[in-house]
């Protein structure tokens, strides 16, 4: 009995989503003068921003992968590349074994509906001129998932009930709801197309603390009920602690550490993870306020030499300044990119 329950997660779950060398660079379009100079061959470099720099990881079916990093580290860009809203400038995303940039027809539709997104700002993510019922019915109509009125009505009501809203809210407008309720509407909109994968981009950052727990519980309940896979993006490790199976720590466009959730909280390997953990307010060590990590996050226009974290790292050495660390596996399922772990 005990054996079978522990066996189940070990039975190597299938990889749903895989990122290989994923990169995204944002560049300003050259103005006319710059284009002319380029013709002459004297063009200055147009400034570009590498929001995501070579990210590799895989997300397994049914797991919750927490993606944590300070604001501006590229985690939202990464999430949007996974849902296909932003095309990558390098590398590839594969969904169920197929490259999403090459998808067409039915495969593209399956991917579009199968991978849904929950947005950060519940005040901006719902069309203010549509009633809740229309917001929820539109995807069904557009994709022909339900055609007759009674069926659409039934599924809209079911979606509302599933996220804990009253079915009479159908006829109201988004501005008549609180932030938490709106976020639930956003979740219902994503769920109505029956996705298998949800990218949650800081879904609770804009909510009151009292509401945050409710929405997290909703995510957990939905996961159990629908066997969903999540990429849960957050800037706050304490939020991820409640929900994630595995955690990836992102810094300036790179994944610096990745590990199962318990291990990363018990024994963080990267100095950045350690500083992030120290910032979590807790009752135990009488730390009541959230403090940002010391120092500014460096400009992604001009990333520091060597390890991007060295200007803020308490353990930085000359080597960190000169040489970028490679990502290595320090234990099964644990990767870190830091020179401190080279010796072991």
């Amino acid at each position: 009995m005990l054996d079978t329950t522990t066996q189940a997660p070990d039975a190597v779950p299938e990889t749903v989503m895989e990122l290989r060398g994923l990169e995204r660079e944002f560049a300003r379009k050259p103005v006319l003068a710059e284009r002319l100079m380029k013709l002459v061959g004297k063009a200055p470099d147009t400034p570009s921003l590498k929001a995501v720099r070579s990210v590799d990881f895989a997300i397994r079916e049914g797991e919750v992968l927490g993606l944590v990093g300070e604001s501006g580290c590229g985690k939202s860009t990464l999430g949007r590349m996974i849902t296909g809203i932003i095309p990558p400038t390098g590398g590839a995303v594969t969904y169920q074994g197929a490259d999403i940039s090459a998808m067409k027809g039915q495969a593209l539709k399956d991917f579009t509906l199968g991978v849904q997104m929950i947005f950060q700002d519940p005040y901006a993510s719902l069309n203010p001129r549509q009633r809740v019922g229309e917001i929820l019915a539109e995807p069904l109509r557009v994709h022909g998932l339900a055609t007759d009125k009674a069926d659409i009505r039934r599924r809209v009501d079911a979606a509302l009930t599933e996220v804990g809203l009253d079915t009479s809210y159908r006829d109201r407008y988004p501005h008549q709801f609180s932030g938490g309720q709106r976020q639930r509407i956003g979740i219902a909109r994503a769920l109505i197309v029956e996705p298998s994968f949800l990218v949650c981009d800081e879904p609770i950052a804009a909510l009151d603390v009292s509401i945050q727990a409710q929405v997290i519980n909703l995510f957990l309940a939905l996961r159990a009920k629908r066997n969903l896979t999540y990429l849960f993006i957050s800037h706050d490790l304490s939020v991820v602690r409640h929900i994630a199976d595995r955690v990836a720590i992102m810094y300036l466009g790179k994944i610096v550490e990745m590990a199962p959730a318990q291990e990363i909280f018990a024994n963080p390997a990267h100095p950045y993870t350690r500083t992030l953990l120290e910032q979590i307010p807790s009752v135990k060590n009488r730390k009541r306020h959230f403090e940002a990590v010391k120092g500014e996050i460096p400009s992604p226009h001009k990333p520091p030499s060597g390890c991007a974290f060295h200007p803020r790292c308490p353990m930085a050495t000359a080597r960190c300044r000169a040489e970028a660390p490679v990502t290595r596996e320090i234990a099964p399922g644990r990767t870190v990119s830091c020179h401190l772990h080279d010796a072991n």
């Binding site: 949007r80 849902t83 296909g84 809203i85 539709k109 579009t112 509906l113 849904q116 997104m117 947005f119 950060q120 700002d121 901006a124 993510s125 719902l126 069309n127 203010p128 539109e138 995807p139 557009v142 994709h143 956003g186 909109r189 197309v193």
Partner: peptide
């Protein structure tokens, strides 16, 4: 640039819609 437009594209709505 608002998120509801992003959400609409994410739900696979066509550009005219």
């Amino acid at each position: 640039r608002r998120e509801y437009v992003e959400a609409a594209f994410n739900l696979g709505y066509g550009k005219p819609r």
